[in-house]
Design a protein around this nucleic acid. Sequence first.
DNA 1: GATGAATGAGCTTTCATTCAT
DNA 2: GATGAATGAAAGCTCATTCAT
Lengths: 204, 204, 204, 204
Amino acid sequence: MASAKKASDRRDQLILATLDAIRDRGIANLRIQDVATRAGVATGTVHYHFNDLDQLINDVYAWACDRFYTTRLNALAGVEDARDQLVLMIDAGVPESENDALVIAMHDIDLYRRGNATMGLLLQALYERQVALYFAALQLGVAQGHFRLSGPVVDLAQNLVALEDAYELHIISGNRSAAPDRARELILGYARTVTSCADLQLRR
Amino acid sequence: MASAKKASDRRDQLILATLDAIRDRGIANLRIQDVATRAGVATGTVHYHFNDLDQLINDVYAWACDRFYTTRLNALAGVEDARDQLVLMIDAGVPESENDALVIAMHDIDLYRRGNATMGLLLQALYERQVALYFAALQLGVAQGHFRLSGPVVDLAQNLVALEDAYELHIISGNRSAAPDRARELILGYARTVTSCADLQLRR
Amino acid sequence: MASAKKASDRRDQLILATLDAIRDRGIANLRIQDVATRAGVATGTVHYHFNDLDQLINDVYAWACDRFYTTRLNALAGVEDARDQLVLMIDAGVPESENDALVIAMHDIDLYRRGNATMGLLLQALYERQVALYFAALQLGVAQGHFRLSGPVVDLAQNLVALEDAYELHIISGNRSAAPDRARELILGYARTVTSCADLQLRR
Amino acid sequence: MASAKKASDRRDQLILATLDAIRDRGIANLRIQDVATRAGVATGTVHYHFNDLDQLINDVYAWACDRFYTTRLNALAGVEDARDQLVLMIDAGVPESENDALVIAMHDIDLYRRGNATMGLLLQALYERQVALYFAALQLGVAQGHFRLSGPVVDLAQNLVALEDAYELHIISGNRSAAPDRARELILGYARTVTSCADLQLRR
DNA sequence: GATGAATGAGCTTTCATTCAT
DNA sequence: GATGAATGAAAGCTCATTCAT
């Protein structure tokens, strides 16, 4: 028997195991057993902490959205220059590889729950938070005198998020014509054009 | 004379029924019975024409890719002006509503088969064909003196396809902040900026 | 594979198998597998004909009530003398042994569904049909000049049904102090007293 | 001082909780968790006091039989007149409502254990104790000159118990045609007839 | 004594697949 | 070609039971 842990620790452990399981098997093939195996517990343990598969997936999605957003927000903390902010966001917005469990899970769950009204609202909320981040950086860059925008701020912000989303999708689908480095460069190219700011470079 | 359908007609009928079934139930919940019901046949009939579910999905994907691409190609036939071509492609590339069965099926299958090498190649091939279409239109517009491009042609073409893909995804997921009309306007805005051609308008 | 039969035949076969299974294992321990084994089919076959266990039990109950009532009604057909009718009903109303699957199933399901409003109504309906049968026989006996009743007809009819029910219960529970023959004699004794008709005898 | 309960108190508490749980959920759906929740303890505590579910049910049954019988015996203490005794027994023998947990548990367990030889003997023992009580009252009434019996004492006693049992069953099953007041009146009617004693009335 | 997290056997249910008609 | 009854493997889910704390 796996030794008893505090309930919240076990929940986090199971959520992480679920992310891995979704990445490895796809959400359509996700079995409770996959999660249990990866967490090193019995299937009953998964049911003990999450009533059923539906609830597990919901909780994983909520956890992932939260992690996704707060990670970025934290990355921006202490960055003053709008150019650095924008580069940082683009950099963080593109998954490192096609095996990024967080990104994969979010896209898988989005499609898995398509048609579910609640899920649509959650997706929209996440989208709008991302748009708001780009919006703020663009606006700041204008104020700082670094950016001259080619169109309405919100339009540019929405397109930046869209490009991120699209390249996430292509990367996790294994499209070699839109690999991570290429994707970053393409989004940066877009950013340079619409901000008229040639001084946007990845510094890694 | 309304005799028994030819086998190829029956196959098309089943493929169309599958598209509807995927839209209604999601690919993860797709059952042979769903297809059979929508086609008005027995489950055995589906198995007679498609050996198993995997093959059915593969055939649906191939059919959908083909339809997706040839529809656009046909739409472009006879259009001489690169500006009209570009507008036409953007217009055709954004689904009319969140219930577009063809778009839904392609995205669902993409994710369902994620990790499958063959599927990755098919997806990449489709992506590159789309890129090629935008590439051609942009190049033509330069030659015709309508476009002055803000960056490498292929970069712009890739971003246009990416924007299309992203907004498709948001539309079928029910994101109201990226509804069809708004999505078209956003992509057009990008196109105007990178072509320096203000004269790109939807004509519907 | 068991060969395909007409669907209604298979349903009847499964209902009979369920009666046996309830008798042998009790409704609380009834498994789909018990039914399938007794019918000589796979568990999937049970699910094919009855969506789930609940529906199976409902259908068995409906079938049993119907069989229970019509069997008695048919037994009375052609019997003119109220005394014969009464004796016949008492005789038929007491199970032959503690292994009477029909009686067991009805009592098991009654208790299993206790608290379910619909089931309460079905039970009441069956009770009232039984009361009506005794009511008719008593009334006829008075008209024929054989019976002189000790109280209101409906009271006597209700008590006759109650005695039947109680002895059914004791018989299927294996109470040797209320075995079938004894039970019949006790109910007949009651009938003789309340009809003032000493001429009520089992003729077997 | 309200220290920890004594073990026997805890056992009684759990038995009472089990009676409630059986009434609410039916014995077929009874879970240890139901008992624990109603007693306000953890499931482990139930197991600590009763080795397993079988033993819990056995103990509940023994407790219920005992309570059922001694309650009546006590009620009769000090009642001299056989007519009062009979009325008292009938009155106490019919549950106040369809929610009488004691009666429900006894019937549920009877059926749940049907086919179990030991349980059959326990049931028979309880039955015979009840018969003995009626037997005594009837006999006493004859001795006191109040009753003139229409048949063998034991026959009448058995029928009285049977009527009680049957109406218990109908009451807890929610049969509105045999509600408590009506049931009492019907059994009393039987009693008046077989004792030739019109002077049997409920005094409440 | 009491707790409740963890276990896993046992069951229900689903559904792709087969095949006799 | 088409049917749909039948199958049985594969999951999900429940819950009695155990046991470390």
